[in-house]
Every structure is written in structure tokens, then in C-alpha cells.
Amino acid sequence: MARAHPQLITGKLEKLHPTQLTVGLAEVSAKRQQWKKLKRKERSAALESHWFPCVLGPQGCYYIVDHHHFGLALLQEEVETVPLLVLKDLSFVEPMTFWSVMDFNQWVHPYDAHGSRHSFEAIPKAIVDLQDDPYRSLAGQVRRAGGYSKDTTPYSEFLWADFFRGRIASDLINDQGSKLQTQAMDLARSQEARYLPGWAGPIAD
């Protein structure tokens, strides 16, 4: 019988399936550094406050719909299990129906590091196989610096990544220095970005 309400369980991190193609590896690295600084009790508290929302899919696989960066960082730090919040049981539906429901609920983001959409089959089967999108790292860096506010819109930081992707040349994106951040902060607060979730720029007269 399908679960009607979210359920809290524990799952093996290496067996969780992602619902996107990319992460920002610079952001993953930053999360690893944060994790290394935590003591044992602080690590337990961090995990308890970061339930991985997921959907139970065909063949009993769990698909996480958030915390991909944290998940990859934890895998690289050899963490084996994490708490899961099961949002919905779709294990009884056909794969095509499963992905249609995931897409309808905005629980999947099948876009590559160029912002191009792919088929659902292109999504990696494991978190460790996620590819790098440096613009996603930049989007996270700008948010943490106060360039825009955290928003509950699904995959909102990928929207910001696409915004920066069209305005900052690819040969400049790997230079994560102050010049790049200043340019990105100016763009984030510009009127061009006012349609994006969490925009915190000045209101035009």
C-alpha cells in the first residue's frame, strides 16, 4: 500500500539515486571542509537537521530530491548512512509514469552543465557520478555572500546558475576570485535578475 504521509527512515548513502545531472563541485568541497571542522556530536546534530527528502521509486530505489551537494560531500567523507524523509511511495508505478510524476512535482532537474535538458535516462544512477557545473557553485557562493535570499522554489539555485551562465563567459567561471564574485553580485542585484527566486536587489522607481 502506498504511504499517504512522509516517513522517516535511515538509508545507505551510496545506494541513493540523484534526481539531477550536476552539482557544483566547489560547493561540495566547501561542505567537506565544514564537515571536517565538526566534532562527533556536532556531526550527529548536522545529520539530524538535514533529512534527505526522497521518493521511493520502481524496484525499491530511493531518489533524493534535495541535498545532493551535502550527500556527495558526505560520501567523500566516508559517511555510510543518512536520515531520509520519504515524501511519496511511487514504487508501484511504471518507470515512465514515475518520471512523469517526478517532473510534475518538480522533483527532478535533468539539465546538464550547459543548461540543456536531457532525457530522464541521462540522470546518473549514483550520487558519485554527478557532473560538475561551476555556475552552480557560483550561484551558491553568491547566495551565501548575501547576493540573494534562500528560497523554497525547487532547484532555485540552478535558475540562478543559468542566469549567470548567460552573462559570465565560460573562460572566466573557473576563477573563483573576488573579481568574479563582484561581477556576479552586481548581476544578482540588477533589475535583470528580478524575476528570480530570492532576488534582493533594489526596487526600481
Rank of each mutant, 00 (worst) to 15 (best):
I9Q: 15
G11H: 06
G11Y: 09
L13K: 09
A26N: 10
S29Q: 14
K31L: 09
Q33V: 05
Q33P: 00
Q33F: 04
Q34P: 00
W35I: 01
R40W: 11
K41A: 14
S44R: 15
L47N: 09
P53A: 06
P53T: 06
G60F: 01
C61S: 11
Y62F: 07
H69D: 04
F70K: 13
F70P: 00
F70R: 15
G71S: 07
G71P: 00
L72Y: 03
L75M: 15
Q76H: 08
E78Y: 08
E78N: 13
V79Y: 10
E80Y: 02
V82W: 08
L87M: 13
K88E: 15
K88Q: 15
L90A: 06
L90P: 03
F92W: 14
V93W: 06
E94G: 09
M96P: 05
T97V: 14
F98Q: 07
F98P: 03
S100Q: 15
S100N: 15
Y111L: 13
H114Y: 11
H114W: 07
H118E: 08
K125M: 11
A126E: 13
D132N: 11
D133R: 06
S137F: 01
A139D: 04
Q141H: 10
G146L: 10
G147T: 03
Y148T: 02
Y148R: 01
K150A: 15
D151G: 02
T153A: 09
S156P: 00
E157M: 10
F158C: 10
D162K: 02
D162P: 01
R165E: 01
A169C: 04
N174I: 08
D175V: 04
S178W: 01
K179A: 15
T182V: 09
M185D: 00
R189V: 08
Q191W: 05
E192C: 05
A193S: 03
G201Y: 01
I203V: 13
